[in-house]
Computed example of a mutant assay.
Amino acid sequence: MDETLGTALRRWRDRLSPTDVGRTSRAGRRAVGLRREELAELAGLSVDYVVRLEQGRATSPSAQVVASLARALQLQPVERDYAYRLAGLLPPQEGTISTHVPAGVQRMLARLGEFPVGVFSADWTLLSWTPAWAVLLGDPSARTHAERNLVRAVFAAGPSGLAAWPVLQDDDALGPALVADLRTALVNYPRDRELIDLVAELRSTSAEFTRQWDEGAVGPHVSARKTIVHPQVGEVTCDCDVLTVPGCDVRLVVYTVAAGSADAEKLEFLRVTNGVRADGSSPPGPGLFSRP
C-alpha cells in the first residue's frame, strides 16, 4: 500500500515516548507512543484536525502545519522533507530560514522544563517553548504565526506590539540588537520570502525600524539581563542567554536566576501556582494567559 501523510504521522507518533516530549509516562498507560491529543497540543493543532490528517480526510495541510508536526514529532531533516512531499509541498529550499528544531534540542528542552526557554528561528519567530516560559512570559499558543515574531512585536504599535508579549520592560538595546541580527539573517538567507516581506513590512510601517535599519549595523543578538514585569509577582530580573544551534541556526533564549535570590523565589512561586510540575512539565490545558 502506498504511504500517505496520515500513515507516516501514525508511525512517527507511535515511536515517540511521552518522556521524549517532557511528559510523565504513568503506569497503566495503554497507548504506544504519543496520543493524538498529545501530538495536537504539541503542534498547536486541534485534535479533530490531527484525526482527519491521519485518516486522509484532510489532504492539503499548509507548510506551517507540516513544519509544526515535524517539530512535535522530532523528525530528522530527511524525514521532515519526506513529510512535506507527502503533503504535496516542496521542502524548504537552500537560502531560506529553517524552522526545524533538531530532535536532540527538543529532548534537551524536555529536560529543561523548569527553566523559561524559547526556541526562535533566524528571523526571530518563536517556534517552541517550555512550560516555564509560558508561565513567566505568557502562553504563546493563542498567538498567530505573525504575532510570534519578536522583531515585529518590538516595532509594531497597538495591541499586536510588544504589549502582547506581556512582560518585558522597555529595553532600549533590544530593538537595535534585533535589527542588526535581522540584517545578518537577510545576508544568510537571501531567498527567504517571509524574511524579505518582514523587512519590507517593517520599513513601511515603522519609522524607528527604518531609522535603525538604515544605520546599517550588523551582528548577532547576544546575552543580556532582562527585567520582566509579571502581573502576579511584579519585577523579575533574569540573565537572558542566547544560544545558537550550529547547522540549523535556531536560537535558544534561556532565562535563569541566581539560586536563593528573591527572583528565584518569585519564579518558583509562579511555577507552583500555575501547575508546572517538579520535572518542568505542565498539565494539559491553556496556559496562564494568551494576552495581558
Rank of each mutant, 00 (worst) to 15 (best):
W129H: 10
D171H: 05
V245T: 05
A43I: 14
L150W: 03
F120Y: 14
E265M: 10
V233R: 03
L168T: 01
A258D: 15
E37W: 09
G138I: 00
V187E: 14
V51K: 08
E201Y: 07
S261N: 09
R191D: 15
T125E: 00
S261W: 06
R13N: 10
S68M: 12
P61C: 13
R36F: 04
G158A: 02
T205S: 13
Q169W: 06
F209S: 01
A63E: 11
G287N: 01
D14W: 11
V242P: 07
A27T: 11
P283K: 10
S206Y: 06
E38N: 11
T144E: 06
V254A: 09
R183P: 02
P159K: 00
K226Y: 06
V199Q: 10
L195V: 06
L162M: 14
T96I: 04
R152C: 12
G216R: 09
A72M: 04
R107L: 08
T4P: 04
A110Y: 04
E114W: 12
P284H: 10
K226C: 13
V21W: 00
E265G: 08
R13F: 07
V101A: 00
R203W: 07
G260K: 07
A67I: 03
S204C: 01
A142P: 09
Q93N: 12
A122S: 08
V105N: 03
G158T: 05
A177E: 12
R30Q: 06
E79V: 08
A132Q: 07
Q55K: 04
P220E: 10
V101R: 02
Q64Y: 09
V250P: 11
F269P: 13
Q64V: 13
A83R: 12
L69S: 03
A164C: 05
E265D: 15
L182G: 01
L162W: 02
A132T: 12
R13L: 11
R57S: 06
P284G: 13
S46K: 06
P284M: 09
A58N: 14
V179D: 01
A156N: 04
V253Y: 02
E37Q: 15
S282P: 03
A164M: 04
S128R: 14
L136E: 05
P283R: 14
L69K: 00
E235A: 12
A258Y: 09
